[in-house]
Design a protein around this nucleic acid. Structure first.
Lengths: 123, 123
DNA sequence: CTAAACTTTAGAGCGCGCTCTAATGCAAGA
DNA sequence: TCTTGCATTAGAGCGCGCTCTAAAGTTTAG
């Protein structure tokens, strides 16, 4: 059973617009998408999973440049697995640092809202 | 003891460039900065603290539009404290949601690196 | 006194990540 | 068959948050 999806179906699954899907292909974040005689794209299940992974990288703040690098490694095959893993390890580290900064900032904002609450009492 | 800082000193304290400091003033994120006869800016201690607070809002993902709204409330005085607190509460909530998404994504990336590690073993 | 290094302004430019336009062609339902 | 709604492309445009330029004035070190 081989399932493919039209670009519209992929917009519904991923939340990416058709414009963005074509853009991602143009900048080589995704490649080799099946076409039929009419020139239309038909995304495989694997394509969709890859897009969802790209979305994860994006949502965790990875710049497109780095995503391009990662995609290139992926399309080069299994010999790049170690390098890909290193990229992800480094990226995870950065996300953790980001989270730590956010937590520190929340702490500071807590103090601010506490202070505001005091001011509100006084009126 | 009343301390003021030149724009260069403020760049060192805050990490914001002189360009950005002027830009923030132009878009009303900060106002009423003291000037002397020469037209130069002299930032008070309070100005610097406010800038540091703005940086916190920025670093936690608050868009400039919202920072402008917050700044406007601040310059309107104490009667806006409740509204400011509400803004911050909502913002903190969004940060927490953001952190949760990041944690979920780290979890998924962990699975990916685990899988890569398996692949690496096999070679 | 001079030169280097600061300051000011208005406004242009930039990098990022999309987002949209225009022109054209294919597909599917009445 | 006709109409509506999809699809395609190259390339322009946009919103965000700065970042830089140019032309001019001020300050400071030697």
């Amino acid at each position: 059973m081989k399932t493919t999806h039209t670009i519209q179906q992929v917009t519904k699954i991923t939340g990416l617009s058709a414009h963005t899907l074509r853009y991602y292909e143009k900048i080589s974040l995704i490649r080799d998408i099946e076409r039929e005689g009419n020139g239309y794209r038909y995304y495989s299940e694997k394509d969709v999973e890859w897009l969802q992974f790209l979305i994860r990288l994006r949502d965790t703040g990875m710049p497109i440049r780095d995503m391009q690098r990662f995609a290139e490694l992926r399309y080069r095959g299994n010999e790049t697995v170690a390098e890909r893993r290193q990229m992800l390890e480094r990226h995870k580290h950065q996300i953790r640092e980001h989270i730590d900064r956010l937590l520190g900032n929340i702490e500071a904002l807590n103090e601010k809202t506490d202070y505001y609450r005091e001011l509100e009492k006084e009126r």
